[in-house]
């Protein structure tokens, strides 16, 4: 079954090319994830106790990629998985019910681990807030860090990323779309203006 589409749909990119531009291409994304992986290792002085958890949908693929890079560098296995936050959202009354995404916690669990949450775009911070609540119900990590591919600003909560692929100042009218090979065929980060995003 295809994953449910979130804000990072590729639709607008193909239908309204005039108002859409590429911010990161495939090579940029690979470089960003590699850098983030190294920063994680540096910050945590190695990969011991690391658990990389992606926030569905696209955060999950990013988490697996980051875990793979770290694993290569360290020549070890870094557990990765997914953490669905649907049931922890604070806007359930405002939008139609969402189908749940899988939560897959690696077998070691999260107790005592350093959990790195991974998402594609950091925006209001509400998703991360929900993820922290969801994580708390799964176990008690030693520390929680946040990695995002793009930080587009406009935070509504006191939340900040530990690792950022690209800071991307945006207008609230603009839309940031992340395409990933795992879901969308190729890697790209696109920005489009709202009127063109339809």
């Amino acid at each position: 079954m295809p994953p449910a589409q979130r804000s990072s749909s590729t639709q607008a990119a193909t239908t309204t090319p005039a108002t859409t531009r590429v911010v990161l291409d495939a090579a940029d994304i690979t470089r960003a994830l590699t850098r983030i992986s190294h920063e994680i290792l540096e910050r945590n002085k190695g990969s011991a106790d690391l658990v990389i958890l992606g926030i569905p949908t696209r955060g999950v693929a990013l988490a697996h990629r980051v875990a793979a890079v770290i694993g290569q560098v360290e020549d070890s296995h870094v557990p990765s998985g997914s953490l669905d936050i649907t049931m922890y959202r604070d806007d359930l009354r405002l939008r139609p019910a969402r189908t749940l995404e899988p939560t897959e916690i690696p077998a070691r669990g999260v107790d005592g681990a350093v959990v790195v949450l991974v998402d594609d775009v950091l925006f209001s911070g509400r998703t991360v807030r929900a993820a922290l609540d969801a994580l708390g119900d799964v176990g008690r990590p030693k520390a929680v860090q946040l990695a995002v591919l793009v930080d587009r600003g406009h935070r509504q909560l006191p939340i900040r990323a530990d690792f950022v692929g690209k800071n991307l100042p945006t207008s609230l009218l603009e839309r940031v779309q992340v395409s990933l090979a795992e879901y969308d065929g190729d890697d790209a980060v696109l920005i489009s203006s709202a009127d063109g995003a339809g």
Binding site: L92, D133, G139
Partner: peptide, 12 residues
């Protein structure tokens, strides 16, 4: 899968 978790409650 919630049944297998330590905390079986969601805030939804």
């Amino acid at each position: 899968s919630l049944a297998d978790r330590p905390i079986k409650k969601l805030p939804t």
